[in-house]
Design a protein around this nucleic acid. Structure first.
Lengths: 206, 206
DNA sequence: ACGTCATTTGACCATCTGGTCAAACCTATA
DNA sequence: TATAGGTTTGACCAGATGGTCAAATGACGT
């Protein structure tokens, strides 16, 4: 009867540990620089065990990317939180800032993948992301037509939002260095978030 | 008499070819993913020849980074082009946009190095960059005090400028995908540049 | 207790990589 | 043309890496 057994707690736990370890190692060393031995050690198991759960390094990488993708889509949905231009943009920028802070490793892996030319996630760019952009582009154009926003190429706005928010994950080390060697604390980060929102909205609100 | 011979054209030519090839390969595959064999092939010479000019892969990488650093410093100097806040910021943003377009490989290598935690250029962050930021931070605060700019943490502004401009190099592939598969042509890029300048200035000008 | 299936692991392998080396090959100057 | 110093290159090496395998161990329903 091929019942879906609610069984596999061991498998679930090990796969989760491996995915988390992989996220750490891929984020720090990149795809090529990460070794399966390092990932396995980081997850507290011998290398052969890693290959029992994930046949190939690329397969593991794909699995990590999928988690990242879901986080991205989740944050992206906050764009639709409101019909009001400023509210929608604020919510979206805040969501992306929070994502960068909560999941810096995922953000870095994502950026590295994009920088490599998206060899793994090209189809996501071609399908889901293209559709997401097309739909929100239309919303932005409507807001412009309604006089809510200054006339701007919507994509330019998206790229600015993506880049600026991800900067707080990608360049966390540089930012820490310029912050006296310490990462931004919560207060400083919240201040930065407010100022990013204010600056971008100030730049595009009509 | 130890005269400086105007001789070494062979050495100069080969080192240049290697540095350019290394820039391409490092930009595409990252430090770990780049192989000295691939770089040498890309420069049109056998691997042993590469190691004759650059003893180690890391030494070659350092040399590439140094070129990138000079480009960065060169663009950074345009911040001081004017005493006027808007003029200075415009000039700086334009210079960084042009840099991203003219040297996308260098930009990507730079970002990758920052994302890795700047293992090679940490001392640059600690010294030159810190000083650069401190000085321009003071300029921004003066402009704010003079009522030229809205009150903003200067670093937040710098991070936004750095991230947004570099986006056009780092995410060139993603941008091309969302542009129908074609990279931005000169006209589209100039339009984007103007809108980036206008949006950031609109966001911070008082 | 038994049998079956999932899990664990050390040993192993082919391949790749950064780097070495010595011999061969210029090129120019005395 | 002899000689010296820069340059080129194929062959080579030690170590690392992704991945395999078979044997051992554990979990669990019957």
């Amino acid at each position: 009867m091929l019942e879906r057994k609610p069984r596999p707690t061991i498998r679930e736990e090990n796969e989760k540990a491996l995915l988390e370890a992989a996220e750490r190692v891929f984020a720090k060393h990149g795809f090529a620089g990460a070794t399966t031995a390092a990932i396995a050690r980081n997850a507290g198991m011998p290398k052969a065990n890693l290959h029992y759960y994930f046949a190939t390094k690329e397969g593991l990488y794909r699995a990590v990317i999928e988690r990242v993708l879901n986080a991205w889509l989740n944050a992206a949905s906050s764009f639709d939180a409101s019909e009001d231009a400023c509210e929608a943009l604020s919510a979206y920028i805040c969501a992306k800032m929070d994502l960068a802070r909560a999941m810096p490793l995922a953000s870095r892996i994502w950026s590295a993948e994009i920088m490599r030319g998206a060899p793994i996630i090209q189809d996501f760019l071609d399908t889901t992301l293209s559709q997401w952009v097309a739909k929100r582009e239309a919303a932005v154009r409507r807001w412009i037509a309604a006089g809510k926003l200054k006339p701007i190429e919507p994509k330019v706005l998206f790229y600015m939002i993506w880049a600026t928010t991800q900067q707080y994950a990608n360049a966390a080390h540089e930012i820490a260095t310029l912050n006296g060697g310490e990462p931004l604390d919560d207060a400083a980060f919240e201040r930065a978030k407010r100022q990013v929102v204010a600056t971008i909205l100030g730049g595009v609100a009509a």
